[in-house]
Design a protein around this nucleic acid. Structure first.
Length: 860
RNA sequence: GGGUGUUUAGCUCAGUGGGAGAGCGCUUCCUUCACACGGAAGAGGUCACAGGUUCGAAACCUGUAACACCCACCA
């Protein structure tokens, strides 16, 4: 027997371990079942789990549990991501607190410490998966740096290199001077920062000086020219002349190119080939010299005269002061401009000319675009995110994949110690002759292989054959570029298949004000706190049902409390059913034979509900599925059926036994349908019920044949329910006590077995008579022409007022019905059922109206 | 500069052509033997605005406004 109250701490205790130990989550145990596979979005080994992880994994878990019940062989591969930059930054930060830099330790020792870090955090992540109740298959767990992934990464790198899709080149890249590594374009986040726009005077022999504006004076040491637009009349005579760089006195050619925007700044632009991507292009075009004037920590190089060794901002300040003292500073304007910051360190990114490895994107991207136009395309939910992928694939520049870090997949490129010739190879060459590239790969390079590499690729393993492509990926819209797109093109290129058939995109959890949750803002919520307070089932329910797919949600603790109340409701309904059916109850198979109208009605609703919930679950519409179940639980099951069935149960006899069986089966169905959302509490209820298997984890999804759908019984039960509500409302409006005795009449005879008993129990009817009463009485009309009369002396004025209001409402309803039914367009074009429905409604409303009018006239 | 989303009850949000819904909050009443994490009965919305399509629009189309987000090399 269940306790009076649902206590999530008791319910969740030790349960997960038991499930794992019993092997319920292990895939591949029955290969006669159709496969269904997922991979977890591997969390970074950088810290604690947050609500974003819950958003990533709980929908996966709901689908996995649902699919198991539907008879699939589910494999859900778990794992963690080494998260190159992020982890290295954290490890370095920890070391720094001990006064150690990574350079003090050296590569090998540093990696040892990083691996320790990984073990530490992987353990935390495991505990948190357990707290969330994720039904992942631990026998298939992977890590983005494990042996298999290393093999896959090498295979991919070497193959792409041999195909000419990976190359090493000198280009302007985004440099993070804090972490001292190159970054890809999407690892740079732009923000509108306040800055200064400096106008300097560049002397020109025999002419007025040229005024050039810049936000970055310190880069003037790397300038190679000044550009103007060829169509700009102001500078017609300047082109071809030389001007003097006020920073160092060097002469710079004045050149013309259409790239220059006439209306921006002064119309004259300085060109710094090594520190600006556009200037780089111009310099290439015109053969200008490249001079690097910033080092890897963004300090000025030896080429910068007395400023050598200064930090870039220090130099800017000093240089501007010096130019001012020479009288060459014209003015300084405040400006808000877009500045790139490192996603990880926050440092202002420095565009630098640097030799890095790149993945050539065009051919890979084209394959994605082609796939997304074919009938075998990947289906995104919601579909609009397909556009996000497509747009990014259309625009993507070559991907800089080398990182000047230690924590990651080392690039399998080797350089001949004598000739410097490069050798790219999966196997290590003679290391006496060669030295390996120092750099590692972008973390996303290995994450991109996750769906197929975790299943065994490049080997043709049984898992790979059976479970790839995976069925579903769940992730946030914020990493479509970083992760989803890269998995797609790598998978298409190397397996010739999509990595997953469906992608379910979720939004972000924001704080109650709608702000992004972040550590620095201190507005984050620890899922572990929620779980401790409300239980993980309530969290799971909340996360998956309180928002629409793809939209952000605001964290709302009240809704978590509401979710817990809901689970408590189910818990108590179960408790009641257990008490009612009693010890030793043996469930029998359901049969419609000999069932009461009430039983038929609830089973009819259940049959329809199961179909609806299933169709929503199949489309990953958890909100819609759960709200259908929710209203069934509250309104139909607890509100109506449980209460009304008490009448039958009290009467006892064979009918009562049948009702007990129905109670049991309906409850079981509810428990099974809520199970994917709330596995812990449903397991507890399930195991306390008779006729259970060893665990809900091995149960099948409920089903009821269509023959159980019985609208006639639903309608009758609905009328009874309406009668009860009407009389209660009548008492309330007429200031009668809810248990005030009334005499009721129903006419004509309502074919509902034991109606007297129902009405006397719920309405405190002292007598239920058939036929129209002799005395004047208030009446209510119902579909099918049934009327209910209440005998009770009440305030005539009040009654009249109420009836007038009701008449008004009915008149408008009748008018509306007549209008729509006299509308030829409607009669012709609307679906037949709709027309019939309207006709029936009109008839009902007319009969109600005439009843109300009779009552009114009898009052006068 | 380009793109996407949002605008529905006091608050947070569902609702993809056929009489406006949920949770919380609010009003009145009720500890009756499943549940006060509860029950009964209620109040509360020109569905942002303006046009259009349709027999019928919160929903579809076109514009407008406000807010949010993404992308982009304007020095």
């Amino acid at each position: 027997m269940l306790d009076k109250r649902y206590d999530h701490l008791l319910v969740e205790k030790d349960r997960y371990k038991e499930w794992v130990d019993k092997g319920y989550f292990k895939g591949g145990q029955d290969k006669s079942k159709p496969p269904f596979s997922l991979v977890i979005p591997p969390p970074n080994v950088t810290g604690k789990l947050h609500l974003g992880h819950a958003m990533d994994t709980i929908p996966d878990d709901i689908v996995a549990r649902y699919k198991r019940m539907k008879g699939y062989d589910v494999v859900w591969v778990p794992g963690v991501d080494h998260a190159g930059i992020a982890t290295q930054a954290k490890v370095e930060e920890r070391l720094r607190k001990q006064g150690i830099s990574r350079y003090d330790l050296g590569r090998e020792k540093f990696l040892e410490i990083a691996y320790q870090w990984k073990e530490e955090y992987a353990a935390t992540i495991h505990r948190q998966w357990a707290s969330l109740g994720l039904s992942v298959d631990y026998s298939r767990e992977r890590f983005t740096l494990d042996e298999g992934l290393q093999k896959a990464v090498k295979r991919v790198f070497v193959t792409l290199y041999n195909e000419g899709l990976i190359y090493r080149g000198e280009r302007i890249i985004n440099w993070d001077p804090e972490l001292r590594t190159a970054l890809s374009n999407i690892e740079v986040v732009h923000s509108d920062d306040e800055g200064e726009f400096f106008y300097f005077s560049y002397p020109v022999e025999g002419m007025d000086p040229l005024i050039v504006a810049t936000t970055r004076p310190e880069t003037m040491f790397g300038d190679a020219a000044v550009f103007v637009n060829p169509k700009d009349p102001r500078f017609k005579d300047y082109v071809g002349k030389m001007c003097v760089n006020p920073a160092n006195g060097e002469k710079l050619p004045i050149m013309a190119d259409r790239y220059v925007d006439i209306s921006f700044g002064t119309g004259a632009m300085k060109c710094t080939p090594s520190h600006d991507p556009n200037d780089f292009n111009l310099a290439k075009k015109y053969g200008l010299p490249f001079k690097t004037i910033l080092d890897e920590t963004a300090h000025m190089t030896a080429d910068c005269g007395k400023y050598a060794g200064m930090d870039r901002y220090e130099c800017r300040k000093a240089l501007v002061a010096d130019i001012r003292s020479k009288g060459l500073l014209v003015k300084i304007e405040k400006i808000v401009h877009s500045v790139g910051h490192s996603e990880r360190s926050g440092a202002v990114v420095e565009p630098m000319l640097s030799k890095q490895w790149f993945v050539k994107m065009r051919p890979l991207a084209e394959a994605v675009l082609k796939m997304m136009e074919s009938k075998d395309k990947i289906h995104f939910h919601p579909t609009r995110f397909e556009k996000v992928l497509v747009r990014w694939m259309k625009e993507a520049d070559d991907w800089c994949v080398s990182r000047q870090l230690w924590w990651g997949h080392r690039i399998p490129a080797y350089y001949d110690k004598e000739t410097g010739e490069v050798l790219v190879s999966e196997t290590e060459p003679d290391m006496n002759k060669y030295v390996q590239d120092e750099d590692v790969l972008d973390t996303w390079f290995s994450s991109a292989l996750w769906p197929f590499a975790t299943l065994g690729w490049p080997e043709k393993t049984p898992d790979f054959e059976r479970y790839f492509p995976t069925s579903l990926l769940v992730t946030g819209y914020d990493i479509i570029f970083f992760w989803v797109s890269r998995m797609v093109f790598q998978s298409l290129h190397f397996t010739k298949e999509v990595p997953f058939r469906d992608v379910l995109i979720h939004g972000l959890v924001r704080d109650p004000q709608g702000k992004k949750m972040s550590k620095s803002a201190g507005n984050g919520v620890d899922p572990m706190d929620i779980i401790a307070k409300y239980g993980v089932d309530a969290l799971r329910y909340y996360i998956t049902t309180s928002s629409s797919p793809g939209l952000d949600m605001r964290y709302n603790e009240e809704k978590i409390a509401a979710a817990r109340s809901y689970l408590n409701k189910i818990w108590n309904a179960a408790r009641y059913v257990e008490m009612t059916i009693g010890e030793g109850f043996e469930p029998k198979p359901l049969s419609r034979r000999g069932l009461s109208t009430l039983d038929r009605a609830i089973l009819s609703k259940l049959a329809r509900l199961i179909r609806k919930v299933e169709s929503k679950m199949e489309r990953y519409e958890f909100g819609a599925a759960s709200s259908a179940l929710y209203s069934f639980v509250y309104d139909d099951f607890c509100g109506d059926y449980l209460e009304m069935s008490k009448v039958i149960l009290l009467a006892g006899g064979e009918e009562a036994e049948k009702t007990k069986n129905v109670l049991y089966h309906v409850l079981m169905s509810i428990v099974k349908m809520i199970y994917p959302y709330a596995p812990f509490v449903s397991e507890e209820i399930y195991l306390s019920l008779p006729g259970h298997l060893e665990s809900l984890n091995v149960e099948t999804y409920p089903s009821l044949p269509r023959s159980y759908v019985d609208y006639e019984s639903e309608k009758k039960a609905g009328i009874l329910r309406a009668m009860i509500r009407d009389v209660r409302n009548y008492k309330s409006e007429n200031s009668l006590e809810p248990n005030a005795k009334v005499i009721l009449h129903v006419a004509p005879s309502f074919p509902f077995k034991g109606i007297d008993a129902f009405l006397s129990r719920f309405l405190f009817a002292s007598k239920v008579a058939e036929g129209t009463p002799e005395k004047k009485a208030t009446s209510f009309a119902y579909p099918g022409g049934y009327e209910l009369f209440i005998e009770e002396e009440i305030d005539k004025a009040e009654l009249k007022k109420r009836l007038m209001g009701e008449r008004e409402h009915l008149l408008s309803e009748v008018a509306r019905g007549k209008k729509i039914l006299s509308n030829e367009g409607f009669l012709k074009k609307a679906p037949k059922e709709k027309v019939e429905l309207e006709k029936a409604k009109l008839l009902d409303n007319e009969s109600k109206l005439s009843s109300v009018e009779n009552r009114l006239s009898s009052l006068d």
